[in-house]
Structure formats: structure tokens, C-alpha cells
Amino acid sequence: MTIVVTAVACGSDSQAADHDQTLDVGSYSTQRADSAFDDQPSRARGILVESLRLGERIVFGSDVAPEFQAGHGGNVIATAGGIRNSDGVFAPPLAPHHPLAAYIAASAETPYISEYHKGYTLSVALVAFPDEQSAAAAAVDMNQNDFAANAKNQAVGIPDYPAAQSHWRPGVPNLGSWLAWKSVLIAVYVEAPQANLDQLTGFVARTYEQQIPKLDGYVPTPADQQPMLKLDRDKLLSRLVSTGSQVLDPRQFAVYSPRGYAVLGTSPAADARDYDSKGVKAIAVSDNKYLYQMRDADAARDFTAHLTDVPTVSKYIPMRGVAGAPSIACFKATQPNPTVAGARQFRCLIPYERFVAEVFSDQESDVRQLAAAQYAVLKGSK
């Protein structure tokens, strides 16, 4: 399929140099996608949105200690069916207290570790409850549930946090701790190379010290109001080429704040600083496409240059772009990203006004068609 795109030459729009020309968009639609996923009340969507709100506030491991400088990603662990079991978080003892949302993030001393890793790791989860009493009771039940699983477990205290519910097994280099802060449960699970209790409790205390201030101002959305929460209030996802089924998913179809998105990477603190300094306001994710909403057109131009120089873990070299749209830059990977599944061999950047779109594919001709279609959708998304 081909379409004719007419460029509007005004202001600082980086597309002003693009000429009227037929673009090859293949079989991709150039119509703006609808936002039906946000139209009706949805409990599942509300839980996702509320969980992403928690993710925006979760502590970075590098803020706790140098031993946790590398991010290992974050994820929503609350669904309409309940909480998913994760490090330090177990569904059965939480269920009676009616959790509203939950998010977990992990970190370690290096970005990539094997299942046999014996170094430093830290997992922090935030679970929101309807009230302070529920969160406090959940902390006690979480600790007792895990404590009862092994007769060798022993209760431990966390310096400066007497309300924390914590235990370890002497000689085993890990520790679990749960602290209710207002209506949010903070769950911490830490591992180290040696079974040093003072070191482990110190890490947990430092985690609480860094995490609690980040929860200032957070007020959980009441359960009866969650179904009305919108995933995409600014209609960013509808500005991306529609290639999927629009199934809500924290990794495949969602909208993030800059800090919340930074949690997903291997260098969260550095990425968050970059997004802030470069004017990133929000990031929409849809399958193999990403849309960065920028402060203004100048920030979009500068961020495009930044993504060109520092794209991802993959290493890219420039290749021929899209005929008829010289503002689109395309690249070929010389070193695939080992941390990302899916189509990532070819990549194009599409700046337009105060947006920057980034698309990926494993086929060179396909990525150009996808980029051309993305350009057309952005131009038609007034």
C-alpha cells in the first residue's frame, strides 16, 4: 500500500524538510488507532494503572547501596485474579486483606546474572491496600506465612524500623522483611554472598529509608473507583501504528511515566535523569513500537539525536532511511540485545513535532514500511 504525505513547513518541526511523496507503508494501516480499551469501566485495567502508579515510586537499587547498582527490571504483579507470587510476596496471606495493586522491581551488582548467581540481589515490592489496618495486618501475615515454612527461621529486628516484620535462617545469606507504611506494604527480599546478618539488616534498613519518602503523597485509588482509571489519558497509544490486539499488558501495551519506564532498564537512575533532563514526559509501549512524548519540538529533535547515539544494549549502525521522509533515521544492529525478545534487528526513529517514535523489526524492508506508516499516523494525529 502507498500513500501520499504532505509535509507542513512551519515552526521548528523537524519534518519541514520532508517533501510531498508517495510513501511505501506496505500492509500497515495509516489510520489512527482507536482507544476502545479505555472507553468502558474495567477492573483489570484499573488494577494495571494503579500498579503502574506504584512503579513510579519504587526505589532504585542503586539508591540503596552500590551492590545493587544494576536494574533487573520491574513488573506489575497484581491482576484481576489476585497477586502473583514473587520474591518476598505470596498471594495466599495477602488475599484476605484485599490488595488493590502491586509492583515489584529487582536489582543486583551486575546487569546479567545466571540462576546460579551467588552475589548481591535486592527485590522491593509495593502493595497497596484499602487502609492502614489492612496493610499492617498483611505485613504480619506475610512474615508469619514465610516464617512458618521452616522451623529454623528466626525473627530479626531492623534498625530504626521496629514495626518491620522480618526473619532469616541462620547461615543462609538472605533476609525477608515487610513493613506497612500507611496503606502500602513494602516487601523487601535481599541476598548476599555471605550470611552476615548485620549487613543484611543494614541493607533492609537502607531500603526503607530510601523507599518511604518516595511514597509521600501517594493515595491509593479506592477499589470502587479503580475501574474508571484510564491507561492512556493523552491518547498516546492511538498515535502508534496498530499492529496488535490492544490487550492491556505492562510490557506490551501500556503508558509509563519517565521514572516508571526507567525501572524497566539496567540503569534506572541514569535513565531517569536522562529522561528528566531531555524533556521526556511519557512513554507509550505497543508491541515493537515506542512513542516518547516530549516537552516540545526542540526536545524531540535533541532526544532523537540522543537515541541515535545511545539506543539500547544493542549496537546499531546507520542504514538507508525511508524514501520521501528524510527526517526518519534507520539503523541495523551489529550486536543483538540479549535482554530483549522479539524483533530488534532493524530500527527506525521518527521525530514529529513534540513526539519521537521508535520502531523495530527483524526485516529491513518491513522496518521501513512500518516507519513510513508511523510517520503518516503521527502527521494525521492532530
Rank of each mutant, 00 (worst) to 15 (best):
I83K: 00
S123N: 15
A44P: 09
G81E: 15
R84K: 13
A78P: 03
E56V: 02
R57M: 03
V49L: 09
F129G: 04
Q133P: 05
Y112Q: 14
A139D: 02
I83L: 01
H72V: 02
E50I: 00
A102S: 13
Y116N: 14
H98Y: 03
R43S: 12
V140H: 06
A138G: 01
L100E: 09
V64W: 11
A44G: 09
R53H: 13
R43P: 07
F90T: 15
S51F: 05
S134G: 11
I77W: 00
Y116L: 11
E67F: 10
A139I: 03
S86F: 13
G74H: 11
A125C: 06
N145S: 13
Q144E: 14
A135W: 06
S62I: 04
Y120L: 07
G81R: 13
F90P: 01
A137S: 11
Q133Y: 09
N85P: 00
D63C: 02
I47H: 07
H98P: 01
T110Y: 05
S86K: 10
L100V: 08
A128G: 08
L52R: 03
L126H: 05
A80Y: 08
E115H: 10
S107T: 07
A91H: 02
L100H: 04
D87R: 13
L48Q: 12
N145T: 13
A125D: 05
E67T: 14
N85S: 03
G119C: 04
G55P: 10
V124P: 08
S62T: 03
R43Q: 14
G82H: 02
Y103R: 01
S86N: 13
D141R: 02
H98W: 01
T79V: 07
A125L: 06
S62N: 04
T110Q: 15
H98G: 03
G82R: 02
G61I: 07
S123A: 15
T79H: 13
E132H: 10
A78C: 04
Y116A: 10
A125Y: 05
G73Q: 12
A70H: 03
G46N: 00
P93R: 06
A101T: 06
P99N: 10
E109V: 03
S134Q: 12
A137D: 10
E50M: 01
R45Y: 10
P92W: 07
I47E: 04
A137F: 00
Y112C: 05
E115G: 15
H98A: 14
G71S: 09
L122C: 06
P99G: 09
E67V: 14
V64K: 12
D87F: 12
P99A: 09
N143G: 05
V124W: 08
A106D: 04
A78W: 04
A135Y: 06
D131W: 12
S51N: 07
I77C: 01
P111H: 12
L126Y: 07
P99F: 07
A70I: 03
G61Y: 08
A135M: 06
S62C: 00
I47V: 15
E67W: 10
I83G: 00
A80V: 15
P111I: 12
P92H: 06
F60G: 00
S123E: 11
S86E: 15
R45D: 11
M142F: 04
V59G: 09
L94R: 11
G88R: 02
G119V: 03
A108C: 11
A108Q: 08
I104V: 09
R84W: 04
A136V: 05
I77E: 01
L100D: 07
Y116F: 12
H117E: 02
S107R: 04
E109N: 15
F129N: 05
L100S: 08
K118W: 01
S134Y: 03
